[in-house]
Write a protein that binds this DNA or RNA. Structure first.
Length: 434
RNA sequence: GCCGCGUUCGUCUAGUGGCCUAGGACAUCGGGCUUUCAUCCCGGAAAUCACGGGUUCGACUCCCGUACGCGGUACCA
């Protein structure tokens, strides 16, 4: 039997970070079994539709690398089909009309039990607790229950992978499958992801749309990897896993039954790990693409591709997110802003005098400057003015960038160029004199 | 309230009756390396395995109960 999974979000907003895990697991199961992974948009609640949501979902899945097979399936296109089945149930006497809607008459005797692939466990309900429910709303659109049963039967989805918030509706679905005479698919219900305060993960936890994580500078691979680990660990307990490795090792039976808490800090760490293990040339491209994405598709004047290429190896160990690239490097092409407090923090006396000597040394040094001579000269000057080499280099850093944290000093100066460097140290001096 | 599901360091987790005086990762703390910040390396602290009863020679692991948490209880998904 072919394995067919589907991700079925409702377009009530942009793709939420929690949805990534559901989509990913469905994707992994499909790929693991050389099956099909489809995207179905559950847009039957016409009042809650958000313009652009479908586009965001499609675009985000693409960015994540979770490519779905076939065309996007829209439930709103399938209205007629659901109505036919509702009619059929009506004719069968399994449903009835009431207040403009079609209701399903539940079986009140016995029990409904289903097997869940997550944790390989049995879930049981007493049918006496099951009230009749609406399958076709008065606007002619189906409710989730009818749409799910009809679609997943017609699409031959197996297993059905969805959030645990659906567990309580299981008896409804099973009854529907049974009275329609259809085979019940296997189900896999994923525990709901919680925020740090242990309530359902939502926008107010700062854990928002995937597109916002993208804007924050997170890598698709890191997001995927982190989300995969939220409730699942591979047998060998490894943490950094490529998509292919996940496909090989993933098993629904190993997914935890308890609700995991989303922890951005670990995501950030993982993102940093991914950045560090990326090849420089690829990382350069990613930074460039990221900057372009931030600018809404426009290519900014600075940094240029060449600047990014030079800067990439220098910042690689210092950034956790692509966005960290900007504050670390923008002093190079932005106008240098000085802050008295930053100079004072150095704790050096005679700043003006020393700066004067620095300028002299820089001007005297043979161009192009070389790292070794540069270091030697300034270690010498540090001795001469009786400050530590450490303080000397830190002073240079601040004079040249206005910041106390930058990529490696000499390399930054090289990108800046001799002329600009001298100009900035002079500017620093006049700032201090003013 | 009722129904369903769950409960190992702050967080993600390993653990399927003896290997556990509970292991790893993130975060945190201390140290090393270092011209900043990082990276990297070393080390520490951190779970009476929610609690109470069983079962067993033996329980984190099995059973029951309690507490707590989460989900559902819509013509929302």
């Amino acid at each position: 039997m072919e394995v067919k999974t589907r991700f079925a979000p409702s377009p009530t907003g942009n793709l939420h970070i929690g949805g990534v895990r559901t989509a990913l697991y469905a994707y992994l199961i499909a790929k693991k079994n050389k099956g099909v992974f489809a995207l179905r948009i559950e847009d039957t609640d016409r009042g809650r539709l958000v313009p652009g949501a479908v586009e965001d979902i499609v675009e985000t899945l693409k960015w994540l690398g979770l490519n779905f097979d076939g065309e996007v399936i829209l439930q709103s296109d399938r209205k007629k089909i659901y109505q036919e089945y509702a009619q059929k149930l009506l004719e069968q006497g399994a449903a009835y009309k009431g207040e403009g809607a079609v209701w399903f008459k539940t079986v009140k005797e016995g029990k409904t039990a289903t097997f869940d692939l997550v944790g390989n466990r049995q879930i049981e309900f007493d049918n006496s607790t099951q009230d009749d429910f609406v399958i076709l709303k008065s606007d002619g659109f189906p409710t989730y229950h009818l749409a799910h049963v009809v679609d997943d039967h017609l699409m031959q989805t197996n297993p059905v992978i969805r959030g645990a918030e659906w567990i309580s509706s299981l008896p409804k679905h099973v009854m529907l499958f049974n009275t329609l005479g259809w085979e019940i698919p296997n189900y896999a219900h994923l525990p709901v992801i919680l925020g740090p305060d242990k309530s359902k993960l939502s926008k107010r936890h700062g854990a928002k749309a995937v597109s916002e994580f993208r804007q924050d500078g997170f890598l698709a691979e890191a997001i995927l990897n982190y989300m995969a680990l939220l409730g699942w660990t591979p047998k060998n307990n490894r943490e950094i896993l490529s998509l292919n490795e996940m496909i090989k090792m993933f098993d629904l039976a190993d997914v935890h039954l308890s609700n995991p808490v989303f922890d951005v800090t670990k995501l950030e760490w993982m993102n940093g790990e991914y950045i560090r293990k990326t090849q420089n040339s690829k990382l350069k491209t990613q930074i460039l693409e990221y900057l372009k994405y931030l600018a809404g598709g426009a290519i900014p004047d600075h940094p240029t591709e060449g600047e990014v290429a030079k800067l990439t190896p220098l910042v690689k160990d210092r950034i956790k997110k692509l966005s960290d690239f900007i504050p670390l490097t923008d002093f190079i092409w932005e106008k240098c802003e000085y802050d008295m407090a930053v100079f004072e923090k150095l704790g050096i006396k005679n700043l003006g005098e020393i700066l004067d000597k620095i300028i002299y040394t820089l001007e005297e040094m043979k161009q192009p400057w070389e790292g070794e001579t540069f270091e030697k000269k300034f270690r010498g000057l540090a001795d001469e003015v009786k400050i530590s080499a450490k303080d000397m280099f830190q002073l240079l850093r601040v004079a040249v960038s206005g910041q106390s944290v930058t990529p490696p000093l000499f390399e930054s100066i090289q990108i800046l160029g001799e002329e600009e460097t001298i100009k900035r140290v002079k500017a620093a001096l006049s700032f201090l004199m003013a």
